[in-house]
Amino acid sequence: SCPVAPASRSSQEVWESFSQCFTPAVKEVVEFAKSIPGFQTLSQHDQVMLLKSGTFQVLMVRFCSLFDPKERTVTFLNGQTYSLASLRALGMSSLLDAMFDFSEKLGSLGLEPDEMALFMAVVLVSADRSGIVEVGAVELLQENLIKALRSLITSRRPDDSTLFPKLLLRLPDLRTLNNQHSDKLLAFRID
């Protein structure tokens, strides 16, 4: 919801406001995770680990709706629209390009809001497993969520057998987005 780059502000100030905008967005993902049926039956350790490795990817899916691939613009929740060129000045160009591509592909699938929410649940529980203790429990939860997503999508589009596989193909895209960007972008934390 925050504006990005009014000319008068230094890039550090812009990064500060960007980082501060991020905090509520992350907290919303945490609340979303707790609402996923079965997520809170996982151990607290595994819940934290999944969130740490999956939150950036869930945010990328959520931010897709802000991106207009045709117009190459980003509209923040406060209604302010920025062109790709003006955002490039912030030095996030490779992430922005990747986001435009990703949102174009995901947008073209035309998911309903509830399908998108279920997809985000799948994204979260499909996140990197390296810190997970009870892998079996996470895999079972992932399997159930994927089954639910498949039946929701196929029940609405019985004659379209390509949509579900195309959707699952977005998971590796998200993992690449995450690996390329989440540990590069810098954030400022003000104590």
């Binding site: 980082s19 991020f22 740490k52 939150t55 810098l186 954030a187 400022f188």
Partner: peptide
């Protein structure tokens, strides 16, 4: 005075999540 800590976005996300779970224990 404001003290700034620069970190990766991944660390920033981890910090927020850890704080959230600690607060809700």
């Amino acid at each position: 005075p404001k003290t700034h800590r620069v970190m990766t976005l991944a660390d920033h996300i981890s910090h927020i999540i850890t704080q959230d779970f600690a607060r809700n224990q």
